[in-house]
Computed example of a mutant assay.
Amino acid sequence: MRRGDYIVYVDESGDHNLVDFDPQYPRFVLAFCIVKIEHYVDHVVPFVQRLKFEFFGHDMVVLHEREIRQRARPFDNLMNEAIRTKFMTRIDELFNSSRIDIVASVIRKPEFRERRGAQLNPYEVALEFGLERVFLQLQKRGQVGRKTFVVFEGRGRTEDRDLELAFRRILDTTTMRGMAQTLEFLCVDKKTNSSGLQIADLVARPIGIHDLRPSQSNHAWDVIEPKIVRGPNNRVRGYGLKIYP
């Protein structure tokens, strides 16, 4: 099988617990970032590396949205407002200059539980939509039948095994011709310093916050939203963004 020209990075925001979830953030978001490998190697990775050296003096830092937002170590230098402003400007530049397409699933937990019960795993529902929409984008780009890795961050041996089973179950039952021959599962250690996974991490929560509080100022959403896959009439909902229910 020929290898594809693209790679997909996936990360989540929130957990998929439907029983005891945070009432301040009753959302689960699964975000998929699609990027052409050539562009990723030539532009995205060098940009992320330069950013790390610029602000931290080394490239061992892993960009995590939560730690950046809370200014927790190693991002405690962002306590300085001038440094924080410059850092966030560079993050904006990373997204604005990178050709990344985003697909995301948002699960509204209370409504999901009421409609579907607490036994159905919202992760699998979010995953199925995401994989289908990713495949449609690859199909448009002539990638059907060309192996394209979908990269997830590991969460533990049991969770990773369950995730792979869910992934393969979706591919085994899909009605989309060529999807099973195109998408390939890859789960990597949480400590892996992957620029793609870090970008997916930066994407997921702002999407959830926008759905939760759409009238609230959300600069990260404003930067991310143009990257979300669109359908006819420039529509995002139902194309690059699935909100359930």
Rank of each mutant, 00 (worst) to 15 (best):
R2S: 10
R3V: 06
Y6N: 11
D11R: 01
S13V: 02
D15A: 06
H16M: 07
H16P: 02
N17S: 15
P23G: 03
L30V: 05
A31H: 00
I37T: 07
D42L: 10
V44S: 03
P46S: 11
Q49H: 09
L51N: 09
F55Y: 14
F55A: 03
M60G: 05
V62G: 02
L63E: 02
H64A: 02
H64L: 09
E67F: 14
R69S: 11
Q70D: 03
N80W: 13
R84T: 10
R84H: 14
T85Y: 01
D92W: 05
N96F: 12
S98L: 11
R99Y: 15
R99K: 13
I100P: 00
D101M: 00
S105D: 08
E111A: 12
E111P: 01
E114S: 08
Q119H: 13
L120R: 14
L120Q: 13
N121D: 13
N121R: 05
P122K: 01
Y123A: 12
Y123C: 12
E124L: 00
L127R: 07
L127V: 02
L127K: 11
E128D: 15
E132M: 08
E132R: 06
E132A: 12
R133T: 01
F135A: 04
L136V: 11
Q137S: 08
Q137P: 01
Q137E: 11
Q139M: 13
G142M: 00
Q143F: 10
G145Q: 05
F149C: 13
F149A: 06
F149V: 12
V151Y: 03
V151H: 02
G156K: 05
E159M: 04
D162W: 05
D162K: 13
E164Q: 01
E164R: 03
E164M: 03
L165T: 03
R168S: 12
R168N: 12
R169L: 04
L171K: 08
T173Q: 15
T173W: 14
T173V: 07
T174Q: 07
R177A: 11
G178C: 07
M179H: 06
M179I: 04
L183P: 00
F185M: 01
C187N: 08
D189R: 09
K190L: 12
K191V: 14
G196A: 09
G196R: 10
A200R: 11
D201H: 04
L202W: 08
R205D: 08
R205I: 03
I209A: 12
H210E: 04
L212E: 07
R213L: 10
P214S: 15
P214A: 10
S217Y: 15
N218Q: 13
D222A: 07
V223Y: 00
E225T: 02
V229K: 09
R230M: 11
V236A: 13
V236L: 12
R237E: 05
R237N: 14
G240E: 06
G240R: 07
L241Q: 02
K242T: 01
I243F: 01
Y244R: 14
Y244A: 14
